[in-house]
Computed example of a mutant assay.
Amino acid sequence: MELEEAAVIDGASRLGVLFRITLPLSLPGIVAVLVYAFVTTWNEFIFALCFATDSSVKTLPIGLVEFSTEFTTDWGAVMAASMVMTLPVALLFVAFQRLFVGGLTSGATKG
């Protein structure tokens, strides 16, 4: 609140306060929520299992289950598919790593 008041005293408009003060301070939290929502959606199993009736629209977690049968499991294929599933999430974390670290180390001080 004090940062917003200080920006208004310095001559910033309400929209300027939003884009120059509030949004940059809340950006690490917004990115964290977006990444968490992506990871949760990416790994969704039960919802996709219930609603993906056609084999052409199966998601990766559903396809991963098909490598296991009643008597055997193709562990090489399971590990390869798990790597393919993990890669986009890992790249997402690497891409936004600066924002995560910046959110942890930034203080709410002016200047």
Rank of each mutant, 00 (worst) to 15 (best):
K58S: 05
G11K: 12
P24R: 07
T105M: 12
T109H: 09
E2R: 13
A52G: 03
S13C: 05
F93T: 07
L87N: 04
F93Y: 15
T72A: 14
F47A: 06
T53M: 02
F71Q: 12
E5T: 12
E2N: 14
F100M: 08
A7R: 01
S68R: 15
R20I: 05
L99A: 05
P61L: 04
V94S: 07
A77N: 10
L104F: 13
S82E: 01
S82C: 12
L18F: 15
A48F: 03
M79E: 06
T109M: 13
V33K: 04
A90F: 14
L15E: 09
A81E: 11
Q97W: 08
Y36N: 13
M1W: 10
C50Y: 06
T72Y: 12
D54M: 04
G103K: 05
V33W: 03
F51I: 07
V89G: 01
A81P: 02
L3P: 02
I62A: 05
A80V: 10
A37M: 14
F47V: 10
G11D: 06
A81Y: 13
A95D: 00
R14M: 02
P24Q: 12
E5L: 13
R20Y: 08
Y36G: 10
T72Q: 14
T86V: 04
L23P: 00
R14Q: 07
T41E: 03
V31L: 10
A7M: 08
T59E: 00
S13L: 05
F38I: 07
A95G: 06
G63E: 06
P61F: 00
V101G: 07
T59N: 08
L27F: 15
E70H: 12
L34K: 01
L49V: 03
S82K: 06
P61D: 01
N43M: 00
S56W: 01
V57D: 00
L27G: 05
E44C: 04
V94F: 15
I62P: 04
G107D: 02
L91C: 13
L18V: 07
S13D: 06
L15G: 05
V31T: 09
R20G: 09
I62D: 03
T72D: 14
R20Q: 13
V8F: 11
V33A: 14
S82A: 15
V33C: 11
R98Q: 12
M83Q: 06
T86Q: 04
E5I: 11
L64R: 05
T109W: 10
E2M: 15
A77K: 14
I9P: 00
V33L: 15
V89N: 03
T22P: 00
V78K: 12
F45Q: 00
E44G: 00
V39P: 05
L91A: 14
P61N: 07
T40K: 08
E70C: 00
T109A: 13
T69M: 12
G103A: 04
T22G: 02
S56Y: 08
L64V: 03
R20S: 15
E5C: 06
F96P: 01
V89I: 15
V33E: 04
V8C: 02
V78T: 08
G76D: 11
F96H: 01
G102R: 02
V94L: 15
T53Q: 12
V39K: 11
L64G: 04
G63H: 05
A7L: 05
T73E: 01
Y36T: 13
S26V: 14
V35R: 00
D54F: 00
G111Q: 02
V78G: 04
